[in-house]
Design a protein around this nucleic acid. Structure first.
Lengths: 249, 249
DNA sequence: CGAGGTATTGACCAGTATCAAGATGCGTGG
DNA sequence: CCACGCATCTTGATACTGGTCAATACCTCG
């Protein structure tokens, strides 16, 4: 999408110790490391990769080698069944770690697809485990990241198991809003990177239902929808949508 | 909470190096450790706890100290929302590890409730992290366990997001069957430890729907249901139920 | 043996899926 | 820069799954 900004970025894979100077260090793996530790990590993480919109970062079934930290861009991950059924398991933004599912079997268990031109830092997992042994705080933080992913998944299970369409969408928008906000973007206005169908897959709904839920929230003046552009007009009422199905008129 | 039950089983907490002699060592945390390593782990894991049916192993909101390995018994974990909505996030049997969700924030994010009289090994997490630094294979296995939990959750998300009631129940029964089988029990005949309501919560269905799905599978002679006793008569046809909604008559 | 929790089944209804038609937006090539 | 074509989105009509409510049966445990 922003592909042809005229950057001379061939050099980028050669920058060493990049974690130290990365603007995402407070969101990403290096949280809580001192300067020396962050340089050790930086040496391990030196390789970068660009994935253009629609490209695969990894596919189900391929051998697991590395985790990936998102430096810029936006990804979806999805699992699919033999019969072709597909489920988006998550949307991922800068600072988040991809590939955690693959540690268990050394094989990736989902696809990771870029929803816009993106850049990731490749973290060879064996090396990460090695340096974890000498940087206990890195190990601890890594455990927290994995655990956070489990908590996140439980939240999605709650959503899929017990919420109605409108509640699901409200929860989804508020989650995006919070994550954009954490990264310094507006919490009330943002562009969706994914289609209605992808949102639907994530939320366990059909795309038409997602579209209707958007329209309904717009009719109530809670949000303004202009295709992929979302503006949250009344975040309080949006929050109410999330929890309280009984007060729907 | 059940600390002051007048237990005659004080002796049990004094057994040392228990992992070495535990019949679950091939299912549980010690997988892949040598004898020396397993004794180090055993020293850390020495404390045991009994939870009687209906009792809490941990509750949402309490401080996280330890992981728990299930030595005997059966647990459910569930998350709940402010508005009282509840979702069972998993059923857990011997050899499985509970508490992984709490690592991220040092606070338990779900309840763990025994569905039958159970016994767990308490694993102080700080100590586990400490000995991981000197037993790399333990660290690696622990990472695999966390990752496996993430994969499991993605499977549940797929189930909740894209399967019909009957497919969900078939998937659930086959999953239980496989796990009983791995533990040396019959894969075709077992007792459910949970109620229809708990199954429903886990599968994103109401208890009546679960009951109807059981009856339907029984009418088709795929399973025999006698209250909590389940017998799988035709595992092949049950597997077909799981994937292929198009061939339902 | 009785009470409370649990399970089954039926009738009806709500919410979402499905099918279909059209509108809008976006990328590509002329 | 415009026009075309394809993907995406919106909206309506209808069908169907599963939810809700209710009555009854069953099981378990004190």
């Amino acid at each position: 999408m922003f592909r042809d900004i005229p950057l001379p970025h061939l050099d980028i894979s050669n920058i060493r110790s990049s974690c130290a100077s990365c603007s995402l260090r407070e969101l990403c793996l290096p949280v809580g490391l001192n300067d020396q530790e962050i340089h050790i990590l930086g040496d391990v993480v030196s390789h970068k990769r660009r994935i253009s919109r629609g490209g695969y970062l990894h596919r189900t079934g391929i051998k697991f080698q590395s985790l990936f930290a998102i430096r810029s861009g936006f990804f979806k991950t999805c699992v699919l069944e033999e019969d072709g059924r597909q489920q988006v398991t998550g949307f991922h933004m800068t600072g988040e770690l991809l590939g955690l599912d693959a540690i268990s079997s050394d094989i990736h268990t989902c696809d990771a697809i870029a929803l816009e031109d993106s850049e990731v830092c490749e973290i060879p997992f064996t090396k990460l485990e090695e340096i974890s042994l000498v940087i206990p705080s890195l190990m601890r933080h890594f455990h927290k990241i994995m655990s956070r992913e489990i908590v996140r998944d439980h939240g999605v299970m709650l959503l899929l198991g017990s919420m109605k369409a409108e509640e699901r969408l409200a929860t989804f928008l508020l989650n995006l809003s919070r994550r954009f906000c954490m990264r310094g973007y507006s919490e009330s206005e943002f562009n969706l990177r994914m289609t209605r169908e992808e949102i639907g897959s994530y939320l366990g709904l059909k795309l038409e239902t997602v579209s209707r839920a958007f329209s309904k929230l717009q009719d109530e003046n809670i949000i303004t929808v202009d295709n992929k552009r979302i503006q949250i007009n009344d975040i309080t009422r949006l929050r109410l949508k999330m929890g309280n199905s009984s007060c729907v008129t």
